[in-house]
Computed example of a mutant assay.
Amino acid sequence: MADLLGSILNSMEKPPTVGDKESRRKAREQAARLKKMEEQEKKRKAEFRRKMEKEVSDFIQDSLQQKRKYNPMGKIERSILHDVAEVAGLTSFSFGEDEESRYVMLFKKEFAPSDEELEAYRKGEEWDPKVAEQRRRLKEQAALEETESSQTKKAETCPNSNYRDKYSHLIGTSAAKDAAHTLEANSTYGCVPVANKRDTRSIEEAMNEMRAKKRQKQEGDSGARSSSSS
């Protein structure tokens, strides 16, 4: 019986010491502070969202405003504002290079910004529609002048007139290539046309001529021997 009672007492949790009580108290206090901070942060976000919903609603109802720019705000606030704008059917963008300087701009759908306007905001520049229109016209004028210049250069390299007609009083009506067929070779320079080199005799005529020349040579040789023997 004593052994059973001893085993039960040993299995029971020992009462906390003074140090353990202090640690648990601090843990409970820290948990309470964290919970309170979370509740305050949640309340602050809800208040900020209600405020943005009111401002966005006023912006939509104001027919004179096409866009609205907000002061720089934190990442959480920007996220809430983007969400409110999306629910309201607006277009929203964040601009600014540094996190501390990031701000949000809202645009009504019918006045959505152009690529040039967005690029200006990204560069930290102010957007002026009149200046943008002047730049657009200058670009169009420059492109038109460049096109006309390229067409002029192309026309200069490809003349419409034929040079043979232009200089017919110098080279005549026939081109040099056509006139070359009418030229005859000059024998003084040893140039004989191919047509003059061609033998038009038949084989039989050529053989008869060769035999006659051979007989003539033989007769000449025999006459020379007779005169030498006498």
Rank of each mutant, 00 (worst) to 15 (best):
A142R: 15
S11R: 15
F48L: 07
L81P: 05
V104N: 05
L118N: 08
A175Y: 02
K154D: 08
G124I: 03
M105D: 02
K42Q: 12
Q66N: 08
R49L: 00
G19S: 13
L5D: 11
Y70D: 00
Q40I: 11
K214E: 14
L90A: 06
N196E: 11
R78T: 09
E126K: 09
A176V: 11
A85T: 08
G190L: 07
E13M: 10
K35G: 08
Y189N: 03
A46L: 10
C158M: 12
M37W: 10
E77L: 07
M207N: 13
T147G: 00
N196D: 15
R211V: 14
R136H: 12
A32C: 06
L64S: 06
M12T: 13
S227H: 12
K35Q: 07
V194F: 09
E86G: 04
K217C: 04
A85Q: 06
F95G: 03
D115C: 05
M37T: 09
R122W: 00
K69T: 10
A175S: 14
E41N: 09
D98E: 13
T147A: 14
V131M: 13
P159Q: 01
K36D: 08
A155K: 10
A88R: 01
R122G: 08
R68N: 02
D199I: 09
Y189G: 01
R211A: 11
S229Y: 08
A212I: 10
M37A: 11
A212S: 06
Y70K: 01
S222H: 11
R135T: 09
D83C: 03
R225A: 10
R136P: 01
F107V: 04
S174F: 09
G19D: 15
E184I: 13
K69L: 09
G220P: 00
G190Y: 08
Y163C: 00
E47G: 05
S202I: 02
I8A: 13
M1A: 12
E77C: 03
M210Q: 10
R201I: 03
N208L: 13
H181L: 03
E55V: 10
A142I: 12
H181C: 03
E99W: 11
Q61A: 11
H181F: 13
N186T: 06
S63W: 01
R50W: 01
K177G: 00
Q141R: 12
S92M: 04
A132W: 02
K130R: 09
N71R: 15
S11L: 14
V84W: 06
R33M: 10
I76T: 15
C158T: 14
N162C: 05
N208D: 06
A2T: 15
K42A: 14
D58R: 10
I171K: 03
R68Y: 07
S150Y: 07
E41V: 01
T147H: 04
E77I: 00
T17A: 08
G74Q: 06
P72D: 07
D128S: 15
I80L: 15
Q65A: 13
F93A: 02
L81G: 04
G124S: 05
E47I: 06
